[in-house]
Computed example of a mutant assay.
Amino acid sequence: MKSFSRALGDRDMDQVDSGQVHMYLAGKGPVTRFWHRKLDALRGFYRFALARGYATSSPLPLTAPQQPLLFAPYIYSRDEIKRLIAATAGRERCNLSSPTCRTLLLLLYGTGLRISEALHLDLADVDLDAGILHIRESKFYKTRLVPTGADLTRILVHYRAERNPQFPATPDAPFLLTQRGQRLSRAGAENAFKQIRERAGVRRDKSARYQPRLHDVRHAFAVNRLISWYREGSDVQRLLPQLATYLGHVHIAATQHYLTMTPELLREASLRFEHYALGGDTHA
């Protein structure tokens, strides 16, 4: 409502016409789901105004364009992750070496870190002896410890050993470096990933508006973690809060946003429910 008031300026409600409302709703870009959220808010506002006599008519449109499909993250299969990793070899990309691209992808897939968290890691934040990452003041200004498995720790140890010795190795130096010894930028990392993705042949249908993103690796981590728990017979409901903490979420509802239902996840959940229904266990 504040943005509507700023857009229309200081005027009586009966001075607001349908053309002005249309311009506010349309904005400057294509129709998104936000268009419909704005319209829903204005409908409630005008119902209130008409009922109390603050307005004599409503300038809101009687019809609305069809809502665009809800964006769905791309959940990489294990085979696609392998193809992406293989595609990092060979050529240098956007001032990033092949080892840096490979390490970044494996780091994101092995830990579910946000891209910004991985890029902001300093040498002092990567405890290779303990296999612990110190994520400092990330989203919501939270600091947390993220353990790395044995395989990922070995990869990080190898990258740290091969890191160009001509660049600073002080505790506050970035862990992931460009070929010029600078900290990776998000734009640089995402641009390199687009090239890797194309080389690996990982893509949505050509008609899709959005192609798989680097951030979707985090979604894949969360979904594959659940699949593994189901296959191990673990109590998934009990473990979900732990996954939320690991991902750096304040509330479990934020974690649920990452749990896109894939055929593989649905199959494992169905098998668990079937086992439960037959009296096999109580962890459904």
Rank of each mutant, 00 (worst) to 15 (best):
N224V: 03
M1G: 12
T103E: 05
G112P: 00
I85F: 09
V223P: 02
P174V: 13
T63S: 12
R43V: 09
A173L: 01
P65W: 03
L106F: 11
A284T: 11
W229M: 12
L50I: 02
I155A: 06
Q256E: 12
L25A: 10
R183A: 14
K206F: 03
E198H: 07
T178Y: 00
T260G: 01
R163M: 15
P174Q: 11
H219K: 08
E92P: 13
A187P: 12
L25T: 01
D235A: 11
R136E: 13
A49Q: 12
A161I: 04
F273W: 07
P61W: 13
G19R: 10
E92H: 10
T88Q: 14
H275N: 07
L226V: 15
H134S: 06
L69C: 01
A200D: 00
A130F: 00
M1D: 03
L105A: 05
P73M: 01
S98T: 11
G248F: 03
I85A: 11
I115W: 00
A244Q: 04
Y276Q: 05
R33F: 12
C94L: 09
V21G: 13
V223D: 06
S58P: 05
Q66M: 07
S98G: 10
M23K: 03
P241C: 07
H36R: 10
K28V: 09
R163F: 04
R136A: 12
S3R: 07
I85P: 03
I155C: 07
T245Q: 12
D14F: 03
T32W: 03
P73N: 02
D79A: 14
R102M: 07
I155Q: 15
D205P: 11
S98H: 02
R154F: 02
R102L: 00
N191A: 08
R180A: 13
G233W: 11
L62C: 09
R136V: 13
F221E: 10
V146G: 00
H257Q: 15
L156M: 06
C94R: 10
L8S: 04
A284K: 02
V146M: 05
I132N: 04
L119V: 11
R267E: 13
E92D: 06
P30E: 04
R218L: 00
L123T: 05
V21T: 10
P61Q: 01
T111W: 11
H257F: 03
A130T: 06
Q182G: 06
L266I: 10
M23Q: 05
S57I: 01
L42N: 01
R47E: 14
F71V: 15
R83P: 10
A124K: 09
H257T: 14
R154E: 07
L266E: 14
T88H: 05
W35G: 10
H219Y: 05
Q242V: 09
H22R: 13
L128S: 02
A150P: 08
D281L: 02
E274W: 09
E268Y: 10
V126E: 04
S3E: 15
T245K: 15
M23H: 09
L152M: 04
L265I: 12
R154Y: 13
T63D: 10
V126K: 02
G233S: 13
Y210M: 09
D216A: 03
H215V: 05
R238M: 11
L42M: 14
G149R: 06
R37S: 13
L105D: 01
L84Y: 04
D281T: 12
L107P: 14
Q195W: 09
G110S: 11
T103L: 01
G90A: 14
H134K: 08
A200M: 03
Y276M: 08
S138W: 02
I196Y: 07
